[in-house]
Nucleic acid binder design. Structure first.
Length: 376
RNA sequence: GGUGGGGUGACCGAGUGGCUAAUGGUAGCAGACUGUAAAUCUGCCGGGCUUUGCCCUACGUAGGUUCGAAUCCUACCCCCACCA
């Protein structure tokens, strides 16, 4: 039910398969984010055709509406959304960070004020686990305390230690759930900000509280310089056991995926594919392009001539630009479809290169080309 | 023909003596976005330059009053409404 198999490695990079109750995920993999149980604007069949094998949903958001009881009443997240493949629910820990100013943290948990209508919601490690169990995703995440990227050692230590204490409460609660460990696996999250000693300690202490069937690295790409993130990944690489799938939370843009894969990451998720898509920023092998730019007014070529997505197979930049200028929702969807496919395909390509042994050189060339931004 | 209202930057539309190259909005242009408070947000948006500033041009047209006018006066042109 929860099994991770490593097929090949290329330096730190790994190619594997993650077996979950709703199916298999070939890693490295990019997981599109569907906060409210929908990857914004996309039909599940579009996600399937884009090659998505697993998607995310969010505990906090689904708890606020429609509520886990509602979702349970209609048969759980999978039935509700009709997404048949694996799902992962984020715990709401990220909202501790992103809803800063609308929340109060205590040792017991976090009180959130719903930005939409002001309602108060209290999330504890136990509640986060219960909600996620009710939702029924394949992977549940521990409720963590994310601190900003440039946090002081003290703030990062507080967040990291609280995350560890909350992890024990999450695990304790999860263990009591009926058949909980057969239907759903709970993954812990490594914190520690940008501080080496804290990161190492977080990883080691987390592992002693195991066994786990996967482990996440959180609190990165939240404002710290990119080299810092790379360094933390390199630091954690030898600390984490090779047998555990590693999930780098919230990352990322195309180059970040490759940089992460090169440093041993197996799973990624990021809202950028869809958010940037809705905002008209399209990913290509030679950097991002703003589809609304006037220079695309009569451009007949697709976003990325090398892309195999449904959007690129059919639509010109000129038409996509027009849809954005006319504010037709089709434009938002089409660029989102492209970006999602782009990220998923990048992971697929990396996997193939790890398997055939050519990953390192290919990855270096890919990054060079991306940053060269030659021919938009 | 008469009376009244009105002509402002690509468009709509404020402003009724100096703080006005001129509020807002739209359109346009450029950019940002990393476990989604985001189909959002930011910047530019008369022209030029030696660009934390300076110089041109500009509020229907022409002239005038004033130290100073989009704002006041005169004439003319045009638009709208009503009356003949």
């Amino acid at each position: 039910m929860f099994e991770f198999t490593l097929h090949a490695t290329a330096d730190a990079a790994r190619a594997g398969s993650l077996l979950l109750p709703h199916g298999t995920v070939d890693t490295p993999a990019f997981m599109p984010v569907g906060t409210y149980g929908a990857v914004r604007g996309l039909h599940p069949s579009e996600l399937e055709r884009a090659g998505a094998q697993i998607i995310l949903a969010n505990t906090y958001h689904l708890h606020v509406r429609p509520g886990e009881a509602t979702i349970q009443a209609v048969g759980g997240l999978h039935h509700f959304t009709t997404w048949r493949q694996p799902m992962l629910t984020d715990s709401g820990g990220f909202q501790v960070f992103s809803l800063k100013g609308l929340r109060t943290i205590t040792e017991d948990g976090v009180e959130f004020q719903n930005p939409v209508n002001g309602d108060i919601h209290f999330l504890t490690p136990e509640r986060a686990v219960e909600i996620q169990y009710a939702l029924g995703a394949d992977i549940a995440m521990a409720f963590d305390h994310v601190v900003p990227g440039q946090s002081s050692h003290e703030a990062a230590r507080d967040g990291m230690e609280r995350t560890l204490r909350w992890l024990e409460r999450c695990a304790t609660r999860h263990a009591t759930l009926d058949r909980g460990r057969e239907r759903q696996t709970l993954w812990p999250i490594v914190q520690g900000g940008g501080h080496d000693d804290l990161r190492t300690r977080s990883a080691r202490d987390t592992l002693t509280r195991g066994p786990w069937s996967g482990i996440a690295i959180g609190g990165l790409s939240v404002g710290e310089p990119k080299p810092r993130m790379h360094h933390v990944l390199e630091l954690l690489h030898p600390v984490l056991p090779p047998t555990l799938p590693r999930y780098l939370m919230g990352v990322g843009f195309p180059p970040d995926l490759l940089e992460g894969i090169a440093r041993g990451i197996d799973l990624f998720d990021c809202v950028a594919a869809t958010r940037n898509g809705r905002h008209g920023s399209a990913w290509t092998v030679s950097g991002t392009l703003n589809i609304r730019a006037a220079r695309h007014r009569t451009a007949r070529e697709p976003i990325d001539p090398e892309c195999d997505c449904e959007t690129c197979a059919r639509f010109s930049r000129a038409y996509l630009r027009h849809l954005f200028m006319a504010e037709d929702m089709l434009g938002l969807r089409l660029v989102s479809i492209h970006n999602v496919r782009f990220a998923i395909r990048l992971a697929e390509q990396a996997r193939a290169r790890i398997l055939d042994g050519s990953f390192t050189g290919w990855s270096r060339n890919w990054l060079e080309r991306y940053y060269a931004r030659g021919n938009e």
